[in-house]
């Protein structure tokens, strides 16, 4: 399905932040992913028209990075870290409890398209290990019990937008540091973090 006007406006707003249109490719792919749960070919066509590069060039970038999903994911993408710091802090049991609750193996999505589960490499939250991302919003210091509660909460409440701070407050434990700019818009909108350096639009 092609993009609606509101989404295109949002995309244009992001494009305006960059001196060159094509530089906005990364954030636009997040928009596409937020829309469908993965990068659909329709979205790729849309993005290629918006920033003036060919479809296959968009596809090339989208397929290179594993955080851009090529296949449909559930409403909530649960990425549990399995790298060394989390492993030492018993991420294995967090993984097991998430797996138990959702009944999913690595990279699987349930039939209702609520959860997708994946084990990932380091997500840069070693200070608060073990860490989990829900739709790329990070929660640190999880325990098997807390992670179970979190999954239940997600299943019950079905929040539209996942905000890291809220998850952290409800289910998190030790937190390493304030590692992201606070916002209430979910993962895709915080990506162009231009607060400190300004954007092409502001400069012109």
């Amino acid at each position: 399905m092609s993009w609606e006007k509101a989404l295109i406006d949002k995309a244009k707003e992001i494009i305006d932040m960059y001196p060159q249109k094509r530089s906005a490719l990364g954030p636009l792919l997040y928009l596409a992913q937020e829309k469908d749960g993965y990068i659909s070919n329709d979205s790729i066509v849309e993005i290629s028209n918006l920033i003036g590069i060919t479809e296959v060039q968009v596809k090339s970038v989208a397929s290179f990075y594993s955080m851009y999903k090529e296949e449909q994911t559930g409403k909530y993408l649960l990425s549990v870290c399995k790298s060394i710091s989390c492993e030492i802090n018993d991420s294995r049991s967090v993984i097991d409890s998430v797996k138990n609750f959702t009944g999913l193996e690595n990279y699987e999505t349930d039939t209702e398209k609520v959860f997708t589960f994946e084990e990932v490499e380091c997500i840069g939250a070693c200070g608060g290990a073990p860490a989990v991302q829900v739709n790329y919003e990070t929660v640190e210091g999880l325990t098997p019990e807390k992670s179970l509660q979190m999954c239940e909460w997600l299943k019950e409440e079905r929040p539209e937008i996942i905000v890291a701070e809220e998850l952290q407050e409800k289910f998190g434990g030790v937190k390493s540091f304030d590692w992201a700019i606070k916002d209430n818009t979910g993962s895709s909108y915080s990506v162009p973090g231009f607060q400190n350096i300004g954007t092409a639009k502001e400069k012109s």
Partner: peptide, 22 residues
């Protein structure tokens, strides 16, 4: 100046390809 082929995927799966239907 008509980049209709590109590398798709990464690592061992890297391949040259076109966009579907393009």
């Amino acid at each position: 100046g008509d980049p209709l082929i590109e590398f798709i995927q990464r690592g061992n799966k890297t391949q040259v390809n076109t966009f579907p239907d393009e």
